[in-house]
Design a binder for these strands. Structure first.
Length: 314
DNA sequence: AAACGGACCAACCGCTCACAG
DNA sequence: ACTGTGAGCGGTTGGTCCGTT
């Protein structure tokens, strides 16, 4: 199909977004919610195409974005997920609340790829480079268990060998994968990690999440963006972390690392924001909701302690 | 201080898919 | 069944930053 009709129109701005544009888009979305992106530019008074607006919102303005460096746990998780999912960045991003596919993709291409190569691991196959070459020469069929067991230890991921025959812990495309070394303690820890999300009304905003997920007969089943356990639901929350925001007031808030966007939006004290407000905003985007007043407590640590542990402690 | 080159990252491009008419 | 449109995704590009010479 190619270009969107909205992009064909002339006089549309391209390139970096100005703080004024950010302000317009942010104010519009927070007021009216996300509806039809193609109509957003016109209604928000922007000389941009809807696609550009959508991207800007998703990758930059969205209040639930977690900005800043990737933690070691996130890094490990990305590597592990990439090993299974490949370049399906949206699906990988769905497992990392507050991170965008673009962000993860960039992080992978600029950092993780090189890191793996330095460690002698083919970032594409996640196999030892020499081993992969040998196997290629022999033209033998791939044997995930073999290759991963032979793989050199990768810092932080060294013990993540999803394919060594142990208990199946999750399903990818209906295929069971295995997570060895998951002790009973760890399992129990994970099972008990339901407290990490204080906003139980929130569901993991995995818009891109599909049937791919972690399926475990011992821990949880991940479906439709939620972990379901025998006892309860573990829902990734997409609550805003807003680590770079001022509490309750975005006036002058540093909206980015490069401080490109400084603007003021109607502020509501953070205390006024209830978890359900965000949920409401998701369910009823037509309602006016001020994202700037979402709870600002970063839950990244909690999250890291929750879902990341599944991998990290294995 | 200037030039250069690599790293990083925001944004764009082109494609596929879903859905409505 | 076909077509047009919108949304989403992954690959790529180009600008900026920063360290090195």
């Amino acid at each position: 199909m190619g270009r969107h009709s909205c992009c064909v129109k002339q006089k549309l701005r391209k390139g970096l977004w100005s703080p004024e544009e950010d302000e317009k888009l942010y104010n519009y979305i927070t007021r009216f919610g996300v509806g039809c992106w193609s109509s957003v530019p016109k209604l928000a008074g922007l000389q941009r195409c809807g696609k550009s607006c959508r991207l800007r919102w998703i990758n930059y303005l969205r209040p639930d974005l977690k900005r800043g460096m990737f933690s070691q746990q996130e890094e490990d998780l990305i590597i592990s997920l990439h090993e299974v999912l490949g370049n399906r960045w949206a699906q990988i991003a769905a497992q990392l609340p507050g991170r965008t596919d673009n962000e993860i993709k960039n992080f992978w291409n600029s950092c993780l790829k090189k890191k793996l190569m330095k460690q002698g691991i083919d970032p594409t196959t996640h196999k030892p480079i020499s081993d992969a070459e040998v196997k290629e020469e022999k033209n033998s069929s791939s044997d995930k268990a073999y290759n991963l067991q032979m793989a050199p230890q990768v810092k932080g991921v060294s013990t993540v060998s999803p394919f060594t025959a142990q208990e199946p812990t999750f399903l990818i495309d209906d295929s069971p994968y295995y997570t060895p070394g998951l002790t009973d303690n760890t399992k129990e820890q994970f099972m008990n990690k339901q407290n990490y999300d204080p906003f139980s009304g929130f569901e993991f905003q995995a818009t891109a999440a599909d049937q791919t997920g972690y399926n475990s007969n011992l821990v949880s089943q991940y479906q439709n963006g939620q972990f379901e356990t025998n006892n309860s639901n573990i829902a990734f929350s997409s609550m805003p972390s807003l680590t770079s925001f001022d509490h309750g007031n975005m006036s002058g808030a540093d909206f980015s690392d490069n401080s490109a966007s400084r603007f003021q939006v109607n502020s509501i004290k953070s205390e006024e924001m209830t978890p359900n407000s965000w949920h409401e905003a998701q369910l009823h985007p037509q309602n006016s909701v001020d994202f700037s007043s979402f709870p600002l407590t970063s839950l990244s640590e909690d999250l890291a302690g929750a879902n990341f542990d599944v991998f990290h402690q294995m």
